[in-house]
Design a protein around this nucleic acid. Structure first.
Length: 531
RNA sequence: GGCGACGUGGCCAAGUGGCUAAGGCGAUGGAUUGCAAAUCCAUUAUUCGUCGGUUCGAAUCCGACCGUCGCCUCCA
């Protein structure tokens, strides 16, 4: 993850199969066919965080869906360059720095690390560039200078503002008129020509971090870093720009105005906005120790100011995979209502997949997680050769791909995964496949095929990349637990052999209370932790 | 006040003009089991906030109303 220039693809780029991918564009308010500016290549920019505090689950919605989108686009034959910015200069960072009495840069480093660690946990690993605003001061200043030269911006006492009235397209993205935006102009009201004008450069007050510029020491305003960095890495016009719905105005509207005016070309072809997450029940958002604790609202947008956070704890409690799955089960443009039960439910659903993977391993002696995942959708297709369950699987795979083609409908796509799972389990049941089965039979070959389809499709969603962590924090104890379980199971087996079911059941019930489930199968008794 | 989104079974959630309204969680019945768990099978919305309208036909389009939420100030 460098901030170097965009890779240029080269001749080796896979021939894109222009599958009929359609994307909902906020600008046109319709789904449009995805037609990249440069054939076969897609530049994608997602607004990342301002790193002044720990991230919360709401910050993960965009990264998870865009990570999935990138996986799917690559799978569909496109070469994708994905940029996520880190905004590490900002008024909030300055305020935080005063509060904690440590340098702004220190906070930015800490919070960036927190953000990246969370992304990693959720399987977001497709980002190509993570540019930081402070690393791009030169480009930012150059950008502002150009805007002044072209007459779109003006300087007043070391501050530089963008003059909104100069951009005829202003307001198009968020569907607003200039008249409707008459605010009080904020703290710089006296300096602005119009209250809707926004800061490109803010002069530094004493004690504030500052960079040298043609207008004196200062720092960039919010918005400009995204315009400058996306330009530096993706060029004047790029394909997809994403972010939360709350960024549509003013952030994206302003980015669009700056970039469009600076380059005389549209900044972005497709604007994509993900829905926001909402807290379903009061007090369940995280540390509710906050100033808003007295607020009685039952629901509301999750935000840092409401005391959300503790994402790493949430991950520890639920696993990153569960959270990723939870986010992907709702269409990305919908509001996701966050709640403990929703996460639990996702856990229960996921557990069924984990169980199948175990059955698969029992029969084949191979880990599902080691199965190769096709890199391209054409590689994943196969000939069902008239075999019922494979015909069904092939149909479900088509349905999955069609759902993803239609504006990345992960919720619908996931539903086919459950159908596939049921088909695979049914096959296992009907063929009587279990431990010790002959691995050279057609039935096992079919099982491989079915598991292969699941591997293929779930990889596209970034799911099941590795076995689920078995109750984090308990690993060290694993050997002992295994030994004890072996002992208990053999004791119970003896009791049952003597028809002493009372003792057998007592062992099982007691273990259940402790969160351990016993599964009596033909081949013997197995155990697992309650999901 | 301006702009916008949403309201689908007990809960979550797809579908946005026409096959029997996906899927998950849960529940119920059956197969299996000593009994369970897991798995499989079946059942679980004549109905999509309410009332009107357009249409041969609407959950899907239009209008009104009710309700929830978001943006308009910092926010993924």
């Amino acid at each position: 993850m460098s901030t170097a220039t965009a890779p240029q693809g080269g001749a080796a780029a896979a021939a894109p199969q222009p599958a009929a991918i359609r994307v909902y564009n906020t600008l046109s308010k319709t789904k449009e066919p995805l037609e990249p500016i440069r054939p076969g290549q897609i530049g994608m920019y997602l607004c990342g965080p301002t790193v002044y505090a720990e991230s919360h689950i709401g910050h993960m919605v965009g990264p998870v869906i865009f990570d999935t989108i990138k996986r799917f686009l690559r799978y569909s034959g496109y070469q994708v360059t994905w940029v996520v910015n880190i905004t590490d200069v900002d008024d909030k960072l300055i305020a935080k720095s005063r509060e904690r009495k440590i340098p702004m840069g220190q906070i930015a480093i800490e919070m960036t690390a927190d953000y990246l660690a969370n992304l990693r946990e959720l399987g977001v690993n497709q980002i190509d560039h993570l540019p930081r605003a402070t690393d791009h001061m030169g480009e930012i200043i150059e950008f502002i200078r150009t805007l002044i030269e072209k007459g779109f911006a003006y300087e007043v006492d070391g501050d530089v503002f963008f003059e909104v009235a100069k951009d005829p397209d202003y307001g198009q993205l968020s569907n607003r008129t200039l008249e409707s935006m008459l605010g009080d102009g904020g703290e710089a009201a006296g300096k602005k020509r119009a209250s809707g004008d926004f800061a490109l450069w803010k002069s530094a007050r004493p004690e504030e971090p500052a960079w040298a510029s043609p207008w004196g020491p200062g720092r960039p305003g919010w918005h400009i870093e995204c315009s400058a960095m996306s330009h530096a890495i993706l060029g004047e016009t790029f394909d997809i720009h994403g972010g939360g719905l709350d960024l549509m105005f003013p952030h994206h509207e302003n980015e669009r105005a700056q970039s469009g005016c600076c380059h005389g070309a549209p900044m972005v072809k497709y604007w994509m906005h993900n829905g926001l997450m909402r807290a379903g029940e009061k007090g369940k958002v995280g540390g509710k120790s906050d100033r808003q604790a007295e607020s009685d609202d039952v629901a509301g947008k999750i935000s840092r100011s409401r005391g959300a956070g503790g994402l790493s704890q949430l991950i520890r409690r639920h696993t990153g995979e569960r959270i990723r799955f939870f986010l992907l089960r709702t269409h990305y443009r919908s509001t996701i209502v966050y709640g403990e039960e929703g996460l639990e439910e996702s856990g229960a659903a996921l557990a069924a997949f984990y169980r199948f993977f175990e059955r698969f391993a029992e029969v084949t002696g191979q880990s599902f997680y080691d199965l190769p995942a096709p890199a391209h959708r054409a590689e994943g297709s196969f000939d069902p050769a008239g075999e019922g369950v494979l015909v069904e699987a092939a149909g479900l795979r088509d349905k999955f791909l069609a759902a993803m083609d239609d504006d990345f409908n992960t919720a619908l796509a996931i539903s086919t995964l459950f159908d596939l799972l049921r088909a695979a389990n049914r096959h296992l049941d009907q063929q009587g496949l279990g431990i010790g089965a002959d691995r050279e039979t057609p039935a096992v070959r079919t099982l491989y095929r079915l598991a292969g389809v699941l591997r293929d499709l779930t990889s596209v969603l970034g799911l099941f990349r590795q076995p689920p962590p078995d109750q984090p924090g308990r690993q060290a104890d694993q050997g002992l637990t295994d030994g004890l379980m072996e002992l208990l199971i053999s004791l119970r087996k003896e009791a049952r052999a003597q028809k002493d079911f009372a003792t057998g059941d007592r062992i099982r019930d007691r273990l259940a209370e402790l969160g351990v489930l016993l599964l009596d199968k033909k081949e013997g008794t197995f155990w697992e932790r309650k999901p």
